[in-house]
Design a protein around this nucleic acid. Sequence first.
DNA 1: CGCACTTTGTTCGGCAACCGAACAAAGTCA
DNA 2: TGACTTTGTTCGGTTGCCGAACAAAGTGCG
Lengths: 410, 410
Amino acid sequence: MTSSGPAKRSRPVALPDGGLANEVLEFVWRRRTASRAEIARRTGRSRSTISEVVSRLLPTGLIEEVGSGESRGGRRPILIGFRDGASSILGMDIGAAHVSVALTDLRGRILEWRRRDHAVQADPRGTAALATELGEECLAARGTGSPRPMGIGVAVPSPVDPGSPYRILERILPAWHDFDLLGALRGRFGVPVFVDNDANLGALAEHHWGKAVGIDDFAYLKVATGIGAGLMIDGEIYRGATGVAGEIGHVAIDPRGPRCVCGNRGCLATFVGTRALVDRTRALLCDFPGSVLAGTVPDIRALEDAALADDPMALKVVREAARNLGIVIAGVLNLMNPGSVILGGSLARLGDRLIEPLTRAVAGRTLVASAAASEIRTSELGPRATALGAATHVLVAALANPALFPGVKA
Amino acid sequence: MTSSGPAKRSRPVALPDGGLANEVLEFVWRRRTASRAEIARRTGRSRSTISEVVSRLLPTGLIEEVGSGESRGGRRPILIGFRDGASSILGMDIGAAHVSVALTDLRGRILEWRRRDHAVQADPRGTAALATELGEECLAARGTGSPRPMGIGVAVPSPVDPGSPYRILERILPAWHDFDLLGALRGRFGVPVFVDNDANLGALAEHHWGKAVGIDDFAYLKVATGIGAGLMIDGEIYRGATGVAGEIGHVAIDPRGPRCVCGNRGCLATFVGTRALVDRTRALLCDFPGSVLAGTVPDIRALEDAALADDPMALKVVREAARNLGIVIAGVLNLMNPGSVILGGSLARLGDRLIEPLTRAVAGRTLVASAAASEIRTSELGPRATALGAATHVLVAALANPALFPGVKA
DNA sequence: CGCACTTTGTTCGGCAACCGAACAAAGTCA
DNA sequence: TGACTTTGTTCGGTTGCCGAACAAAGTGCG
């Protein structure tokens, strides 16, 4: 997986084989800063061992000594810090109708950001070219001295089979059949490329930088063109037996509901997708001549803005959506008992205007006290969440296997 | 945790600390029989290492040499076998209105079996006494020479918080508040005691001995007095953030349905629990004067028997139950993408008479092809499944930590 | 201020797990 | 029969990690 690419740079620094170097690296990353003695205490190893591992880790440039900490009654510790800027990561969000790219450091800080609308569904080659272009723009904007990123993460609006990640998108985007986006990116940038479903990566972003920090069991729901859930179980993304866990867009919530493209009746997607919300808004316009949207041809953004301005009609659409989402979320709570439920996608902008009716809808459908106790909240990561999650995926992979870091050899 | 009990038996045999002895033991258990060379190949260790570990494992009596295997072109291997009879386990199923106890060997074979009806809900002390009595009966029946079991597993019809397993049952059985069933059993038998929810343990039994052998992601639904699900994820029981995952009895499947004891409307439990099925049967009796049940006061067993005899009225009740179960199962499929769904509890006796309408109900509510591909099947473990699962829990714990085996010291 | 006590980080000798090479025993195949 | 394989054991060597000892650099009390 590690590309033995063309650039023969400074001699790779050897990393100890043992999982211990790994553990130490990840520990320092999490704590941001820690002394050798503290690492030893927390990992249960001796100070001598940690001292030796740290001394082998220092030349990699991933960690460094950053001054001294407070005394605990004796000699002051030398603090070891993680070098967030030691490398960078490209995170790409391939949406249904747009491509966006984030360049991040190793702490999830977005250094550069590009977004462009594009007919992704119909144009695989153009999409790959656009993703490459935006990625290069991000790298160039950081100056000529900036090295290659350590890896690329890609989010796609489709289930990804962990067994064969190259056969992505086909199911939802037939035009993509046989086009190898990942291979194109790897060829262009010469670094490892990782893919996953957008909802899964959104969940990952929340787990590291958002509302789910410290929570290892939660569900992330992304409401966008489609609806998907990312399930984090015991700190890891859960994919199910065949990689399609969380595909909740076609859960039936009303056997008497309208027919869906999938052939069934009353799917969640027929009530809460971007398309459905806009249609519903337009249908209601005649009943609400006083709405700020009256006389316009609203899109999803206009609907959200109107709701944020407390327009009664927009709020009615949101309440209906909340009720329908609530049915599904109640099912998730009863079945999986997550510690938290987090809503992402553009609808998350609505904050309490969405959460409040949603909480009511859920409360009427859950029994077990502790299940009902899981908080339901909106994401605050905004429109960059998915791309950030894609970058985070690369970071997580590297911390679990430091051989991925440039200039570090296992 | 290892009881340094009264009986001072033959000097404990020391087991190597390393996880390797563990790995070897579990490997031999799984394969039933294997040569040293094969263990070395499969675990990635050298033959010399494995040879040494095996030689230290042999005196524990957990494994033994059992003849020689087929040559692969050279010297014939000496086969190492796991001694299933090296110890025994007590598995106890505490139901809503009965107690049953199984004594098993280390291969899940039920050596002895006792079951008695009892007012569990109202009588904690009597229940503990009964469980003890049945356990002792099982042990006595194996002859005086039979040693103590290596541990006791207990299944309870209630969520179990993994953090504080002693506060069980309270939520569902208020009379049990402050009564320490586990402590009583440990005191009486002098061996470690483990508890878990009955549906979770049913899933464990299926995973080891039933329809889910080899499947690491599946859902087990137990239909009895209550309805519960045991979720196996990546080979481990999933408990959720607060230990109540799988409590699906109160998932709302019809907002216009009857009121439930929990205060909501249309809970699954109001349609499919033992009580609900019996009530529904009795209500239908007047419409089906020709039913074999006409003129009787049927219970759940009579209903199942009638369905097995293809009585139209009983089949109608089953079909309705299947439809309602199907709604919930469809939700499970869409959300979690399990590799299989297995139905347990007494209703599983019905086999295809239940599965066939159930499959139809589910098919109308799931989209993603691979999700719909998960097979739905009935358990074949019968009424002993839960007690067997409780015993299996102890076995799994011991294979992960051989110090639990009697006469083996870590 | 001086002195006893802590804590940190390093050095060094040693233990235990594990490996590879070598070998005898017990097979297969041409 | 002889060349080649595979198995299981022995034995010396490497390696990851520990504990003890120590110097450096603190704190706090009399």
